[in-house]
Simulated assay, not measured.
Amino acid sequence: MDASDVTVRNDPARQRYELLDGETVIGATHWVPFAGTDGPQRIFYHTTVDDAYGGRGLASVLARRALDDTVDAGLTVVPVCPYIKTWLRKHPGHQEHTAPVRPEHLAAVPHERR
């Protein structure tokens, strides 16, 4: 399996983008909405890919599609998640669509993920 074999979908009810192998969820990047002073934002706070699918660049596929979809929806990305932060450093073209993490962003992240 490679990146062309997976799909990514947003599941707003669960506040996450899901990485799918067929209909099986094999990874996710979790988000929460935030009303920023400069407009609506989406805080990304946790990203995972099942170990069995590791080392194939699938987390990068998930990040790119989730962030592109967020920007296309007119939202600013707030990168709390360490993986998303690292991905953004490697893809500077996305930087203009991000906001710096502030204490109020961290307070908005579900408690179990802080």
Rank of each mutant, 00 (worst) to 15 (best):
residue 83 Y to W: 07
residue 59 A to H: 09
residue 103 P to L: 06
residue 82 P to M: 05
residue 73 A to V: 05
residue 98 T to V: 02
residue 102 R to H: 12
residue 1 M to W: 14
residue 12 P to A: 09
residue 100 P to R: 06
residue 45 Y to G: 03
residue 99 A to Q: 10
residue 53 Y to V: 11
residue 14 R to Q: 14
residue 8 V to P: 02
residue 7 T to N: 09
residue 92 P to W: 11
residue 14 R to Y: 06
residue 54 G to F: 09
residue 60 S to M: 07
residue 32 V to T: 09
residue 8 V to S: 02
residue 39 G to M: 11
residue 90 K to M: 13
residue 7 T to C: 03
residue 91 H to Y: 06
residue 97 H to P: 02
residue 11 D to M: 08
residue 39 G to W: 12
residue 50 D to R: 14
residue 77 V to F: 06
residue 1 M to S: 15
residue 30 H to F: 14
residue 65 R to W: 08
residue 18 E to K: 00
residue 98 T to M: 05
residue 44 F to L: 03
residue 46 H to D: 07
residue 25 V to Q: 13
residue 67 L to F: 00
residue 45 Y to W: 05
residue 83 Y to L: 05
residue 77 V to T: 10
residue 61 V to E: 06
residue 32 V to N: 00
residue 83 Y to V: 07
residue 5 D to I: 03
residue 95 Q to R: 15
residue 45 Y to A: 00
residue 1 M to P: 15
residue 27 G to S: 00
residue 60 S to C: 08
residue 86 T to S: 15
residue 100 P to M: 04
residue 112 E to V: 10
residue 102 R to P: 08
residue 19 L to C: 05
residue 48 T to I: 14
residue 44 F to Q: 00
residue 40 P to Y: 02
residue 94 H to G: 10
residue 33 P to M: 06
residue 97 H to A: 13
residue 8 V to K: 03
residue 27 G to A: 00
residue 114 R to S: 09
residue 72 D to N: 15
residue 48 T to C: 07
residue 12 P to H: 04
residue 80 V to D: 00
residue 73 A to Q: 13
residue 58 L to N: 01
residue 49 V to P: 04
residue 43 I to P: 05
residue 59 A to Y: 07
residue 33 P to K: 08
residue 68 D to N: 06
residue 62 L to S: 04
residue 85 K to D: 12
residue 28 A to M: 06
residue 101 V to N: 06
residue 88 L to R: 00
residue 35 A to W: 12
residue 30 H to N: 08
residue 27 G to H: 00
residue 61 V to L: 10
residue 4 S to V: 14
residue 68 D to A: 09
residue 54 G to N: 12
residue 98 T to L: 05
residue 89 R to G: 14
residue 57 G to D: 07
residue 22 G to L: 08
residue 110 P to C: 01
residue 50 D to E: 12
residue 37 T to N: 14
residue 80 V to P: 04
residue 69 D to N: 04
residue 10 N to T: 01
residue 56 R to F: 11
residue 95 Q to A: 15
residue 49 V to R: 01
residue 47 T to G: 05
residue 61 V to M: 02
residue 14 R to T: 09
residue 37 T to L: 15
residue 17 Y to A: 04
residue 18 E to W: 03
residue 48 T to Y: 14
residue 55 G to D: 10
residue 72 D to T: 12
residue 62 L to N: 00
residue 20 L to Y: 09
residue 41 Q to M: 07
residue 70 T to K: 01
residue 67 L to Y: 02
residue 28 A to V: 02
residue 99 A to C: 06
residue 108 A to T: 13
residue 9 R to K: 12
residue 26 I to N: 01
residue 64 R to Q: 10
residue 41 Q to N: 07
residue 63 A to G: 02
residue 109 V to M: 02
residue 41 Q to C: 06
residue 78 V to K: 02
residue 101 V to A: 01
residue 110 P to H: 00
residue 7 T to I: 10
residue 86 T to N: 14
residue 47 T to N: 03
residue 64 R to E: 14
residue 42 R to D: 11
residue 30 H to M: 12
residue 65 R to T: 14
residue 26 I to F: 09
residue 32 V to S: 01
residue 23 E to Y: 10
residue 58 L to D: 00
residue 20 L to T: 01
residue 41 Q to H: 07
residue 100 P to W: 07
residue 6 V to C: 11
